[in-house]
Design a protein around this nucleic acid. Structure first.
Lengths: 310, 310
DNA sequence: TTACTTATACTAAGAATGAGCATTAAAATC
DNA sequence: GATTTTAATGCTCATTCTTAGTATAAGTAA
């Protein structure tokens, strides 16, 4: 059918990592060069697999173990933003979760909240006002400028699917679709023909903001059926701390009682016996993660116990 | 943190495709060389993206459009089965769905039922007897041969999670975990130290059976929230034909009335007005897929209406 | 002591799911 | 032509899962 593929000429392999940590209820991502780049790992190492090489490299750099690693996507587009056109760049990206941050306040590498890059993705205090006030109007203009009637209707439908109506119908998993729609509409500075007035949100170089969007989307989808969020928690924690962590990742508020019922129903935690008196109110019991459940089958039944904002 | 990655020396890029079609209620995969290889596509093409290049290549070869394409995984392990050790091979694999098969009965390329490679994955007629009779005994032996007590318990737990108890608790999505467990236990011919009596199921060269397992697993998971199975259907079909298609992919029987209720509740189809008189009984109405729903939000609520075998 | 937080128990309504009965409509067979 | 067989389709009922609360307990800060 096809001869065995010949070794391709002039291929550069690049590893990109979306490294996530969590501090003060903010989801953080490790960045370089004033927040404009994701860290790139070495490819040709002594390690047998990409994943083990990446893990060792991150652990050496941050002095903390990587709790969870998963491959995100491989980009190899010829006219990929950032490639110079003559050499094909294959970029293999990974998502990694880690428990603690390296030296606080450092620059390069620096941990930054991912909502600086995607401010419209934070709905923890209710629907992001950015969407109804800024994004939807611009996208509607773009949709109405589409060529023929079919194209216009298709654009409108994509806007509606990705962003909902700006209030009730929000799907927090569609991070990547939303970014790509804004990219196509020229509403982010990375676009080929960027508009004069892009939507708020810090850009990155090359296609690193797209890779970050891929990572956030994957993580938001993942926490619904695998309790990976424990990799971001300290060994002991209260249920409210756990809830705030999940809310930070999902970008949405949750119903406290139902959240606890869910965690309990799946046997994710066990009490340590101790209590925390960190906050002002009634002391909360401390829990630890039951490692055994990682091996068990899927959990959390694909639905997070969202609450409607008050 | 790290200098920009230097172009790696001696890297070969290989594209592998898991191309799926469906005929006579069998899920088929395109193979080469007497069923021992998956097709490999060219890498350096005139196309701007890997995906468009793969799509064009497949459509040229099979004379049928590829309905759906998705990236599966990138393997780049140094001691990957099939690599000769000196040159690093990066293998990017894709899943593609297509509607019709090319010339029937052809050899090379040839469409083969994926259950020839994974006979234990077909539970359409109830729990696969292979599991209780052959696989679980062998895996139990392997688990009990583990080094210390901790290792033995961990092995047992992995067997239990991947294969369940051989009867009630079966998760059809864990195709890859099951194959990898059998690989580790030396129970497939591809293993490094294969046992004298591997479990039934046709092997493939290199790591192509692992790639196929990845594709099946991805597809089984995908149909629960995106109706991609329509890409395998003719333009008009009866609801029973649709059910048989989903059953072929998931490898499990479904409850007919509840399956129809689900399809109906999500507005996936619309009647064409015509009826089919293919089978003996009462003629079934013909339906067509409502293309609009592809754009809409997630569907099928993560649960297929399984039925217990009679 | 009072006001305020936070934790935790419990419940009622509604939606989704699992399982099956009953009926209809055609072809095949006697 | 009546009867059997095969499938399609309509409908119900119980159970479980979700949603959205109310109520109460147990601490700290003023």
């Amino acid at each position: 059918m096809t001869p065995p593929p010949a070794p391709s000429d002039a291929v550069a392999i690049e590893l990109n990592a979306v490294l996530v940590a969590l501090t003060a209820n903010q989801p953080l991502v490790l960045t370089l060069e004033d927040g404009t780049l994701l860290p790139s790992g070495p490819f040709a190492t002594e390690h047998p697999t990409l994943q083990s090489g990446l893990r060792a490299w991150v652990e050496r750099q941050t002095n903390h173990p990587l709790g969870y690693v998963e491959q995100l996507y491989t980009f190899a587009d010829r006219n990929r933003p950032g490639s110079d056109g003559c050499q094909r760049v294959v970029s293999i990206s990974y998502l990694g979760l880690t428990r603690e941050r390296l030296s606080a306040g450092a620059r390069d590498p620096e941990w930054r909240s991912w909502y600086r890059y995607f401010p419209w993705e934070d709905w923890r205090a209710g629907p992001s006002p950015l969407i109804a006030q800024t994004i939807l109007p611009k996208l509607t203009t773009w949709a109405e400028a589409g060529g023929d009637a079919t194209s216009r209707r298709e654009r409108q439908q994509r806007v509606e699917v990705s962003f909902g109506d700006g209030a009730e119908t929000w799907n927090e998993d569609l991070v990547l679709q939303r970014y790509e729609l804004l990219y196509e509409a020229g509403l982010v500075p990375e676009a080929k023909q960027p508009a004069a007035d892009p939507v708020p949100g810090m850009p990155m170089r090359h296609d690193h903001r797209r890779i970050l969007a891929t990572g956030i989307a994957r993580l938001r989808a993942k926490i619904k059926y695998r309790p990976v969020f424990f990799e971001l928690m300290p060994p002991e924690f209260t249920l409210l701390q756990l809830q705030r962590t999940v809310e930070a990742l999902a970008g949405r508020p949750m119903h406290k009682q139902n959240f606890r019922r869910l965690i309990d129903a799946h046997g994710l935690v066990e009490p340590t016996g101790a209590s925390s008196a960190e906050a002002r109110g009634r002391p909360a019991k401390l829990f630890r993660f039951r490692r055994e459940v990682v091996l068990e089958r899927a959990v959390l039944g694909s639905k997070l116990p969202l609450s409607r904002p008050i």
